[in-house]
Amino acid sequence: MKKKFPNITSKIPPVVAIAAILIAWQLVSISGLLPSYMLPSPVAVCQALVNDRSTILFHAGFTLQESFYGLVIGVCLAFLFATMMDRFPILDQAFYPIMIITQTIPTIAIAPILVLWMGFGMAPKITLVVITTFFPITIGLLDGYKSVDMDAVHLLQAMGASRAQIFYHVKFPSALPHFFSGLKISASYAVVGAVVSEWLGGFNGLGVYMTRVKKAYAFDKMFAVIIFIVVISLLLLLAVNVIRRIVMPWLHTEKGEKKR
């Protein structure tokens, strides 16, 4: 019971903060400081979310597909690039500055070019998600590879271990915490990147739906989509945490021992 009590109390501040924001939002809405069509109340947003749930879920299917495909491709490319850059220092020196430069370009500026090159299908959306998710995972893996315990590497080398064995037993496990830190960022960026690309052209998706309801001044529906995107992002972060627990059970064992 004593162990559960800190976990319960730690959840009280965020719940209170969210409740305070919702109450303040409701008070501003009913006070008339802003017209209701500009700032719909939380009740109106929830009603729009329930009433338009079928349409929102239909468009969410396309956005989630783009996010998933882009995230998977981004993870694979990040693993390949980070591993090659760690293996060959000259590649690290050549490509690291280029990766930094690419992150200074706003995604809203890249999206129209991708649509112009690839059309209005899923290809430009997936490409933008790949560009958005690639960087945090690559940097996380590179930092993880560089933080490896060199004494362990030298020990395995003295025992005659190959490069592949050293990578599998030492380098990759040490990089996993950094990898999942980057994956958390990329998972939340994936949905946002897909929605941003859908704003600029397409036929289906949450970004297309938001553009349509904005033009119709149905801001309650627009806020409903925003809340839906937030929920999806939180669920993705939760999924990453679950996978992290499964892949790295020793971290939670160490935390439990420290608490004792």
Rank of each mutant, 00 (worst) to 15 (best):
2 K>N: 12
14 P>A: 08
16 V>K: 09
16 V>I: 15
16 V>Y: 04
16 V>C: 06
17 A>W: 03
19 A>K: 06
21 I>A: 15
21 I>V: 08
22 L>D: 09
22 L>H: 14
23 I>W: 15
24 A>E: 01
26 Q>P: 01
26 Q>H: 12
36 S>V: 06
37 Y>I: 11
39 L>D: 00
39 L>K: 13
40 P>N: 12
42 P>Y: 03
43 V>E: 13
44 A>E: 12
47 Q>T: 08
50 V>G: 03
52 D>T: 13
53 R>F: 13
54 S>G: 01
56 I>T: 10
56 I>F: 15
58 F>H: 14
60 A>E: 14
61 G>R: 15
61 G>V: 14
61 G>I: 13
62 F>D: 15
63 T>F: 06
64 L>D: 09
67 S>Y: 04
67 S>F: 00
68 F>P: 13
69 Y>S: 01
70 G>P: 07
72 V>D: 04
73 I>G: 06
75 V>L: 00
78 A>L: 02
79 F>H: 06
81 F>D: 03
83 T>S: 03
84 M>T: 13
85 M>Y: 02
85 M>N: 09
85 M>T: 03
86 D>C: 00
87 R>G: 06
88 F>C: 05
90 I>T: 08
92 D>K: 11
95 F>S: 10
95 F>G: 05
95 F>L: 14
97 P>H: 05
103 Q>K: 02
105 I>V: 15
105 I>L: 08
106 P>Y: 04
107 T>G: 13
108 I>A: 08
113 I>S: 01
113 I>F: 09
113 I>E: 03
113 I>P: 14
116 L>F: 04
116 L>D: 14
119 G>S: 01
125 K>W: 08
129 V>T: 04
131 I>Y: 04
132 T>C: 08
140 G>I: 11
144 G>C: 05
145 Y>W: 10
147 S>K: 15
147 S>Y: 10
150 M>P: 14
151 D>L: 01
151 D>M: 12
152 A>W: 14
153 V>R: 11
153 V>K: 12
154 H>F: 11
155 L>A: 12
158 A>E: 03
159 M>H: 04
161 A>P: 05
162 S>Q: 05
168 Y>G: 05
169 H>G: 03
170 V>D: 09
172 F>N: 05
173 P>D: 11
176 L>G: 02
179 F>E: 07
182 G>W: 06
183 L>P: 01
185 I>G: 01
186 S>Y: 06
186 S>C: 00
188 S>W: 02
191 V>D: 13
192 V>W: 01
192 V>H: 07
194 A>W: 11
195 V>S: 02
197 S>W: 05
206 L>G: 00
207 G>P: 07
208 V>A: 00
210 M>A: 12
210 M>L: 12
212 R>C: 04
213 V>T: 11
216 A>S: 09
216 A>Q: 06
219 F>H: 04
222 M>G: 07
226 I>K: 12
227 I>T: 13
227 I>Q: 06
230 V>K: 11
232 I>T: 10
233 S>C: 10
235 L>M: 14
236 L>W: 14
237 L>W: 09
237 L>F: 10
238 L>S: 02
238 L>M: 08
242 V>S: 03
247 V>Q: 07
251 L>K: 14
251 L>Q: 10
253 T>I: 08
254 E>A: 13
254 E>R: 14
255 K>R: 10
257 E>L: 15
259 K>A: 12
260 R>T: 04
